[in-house]
């Protein structure tokens, strides 16, 4: 179910769901955490072998995989921790300074 919370700041207490339940599953997806980042992962596609180690070790579910292949990084949620670059067996991911 899509839960419209655009005007939640103006809601009266009785407009919130009872027991403060959240009716939409996984809506944190709409909450960007990319602005936390000070460095950005960049994949060198010549080196990448699609072993998917970055996918299993990413704390923010930010490695986008389609059809068994890594296709990119979800920069709206990536916090730039650098675990992917550290764990990549082919050193195909480089952490670059994020531009302001």
């Amino acid at each position: 179910m899509k839960w419209d919370i655009r005007k939640i700041k103006e809601w009266k207490f009785y407009e919130h769901p009872q027991g403060i339940t959240i009716p939409e599953a996984g809506n944190a997806h709409y909450y960007p955490t990319g602005s936390w980042r000070s460095q950005r992962p960049e994949i060198n596609w010549d080196k990448c072998t699609h072993c998917l180690f970055c996918f299993i070790y990413c704390p923010d579910s930010s490695i986008i995989v389609k059809g068994e292949k890594v296709v990119g990084i979800d920069l709206a949620h990536c916090k730039g921790c650098g675990v992917c670059a550290e764990e990549c067996p082919k050193q195909a991911i480089e952490m670059l300074k994020e531009r302001v």
Binding site: T33, R37, P59, S62
Partner: peptide, 11 residues
């Protein structure tokens, strides 16, 4: 577990 949670970077 979607992205957009507020755990620290590298948690």
């Amino acid at each position: 577990l979607t992205g957009g949670h507020r755990l620290c970077a590298g948690c």
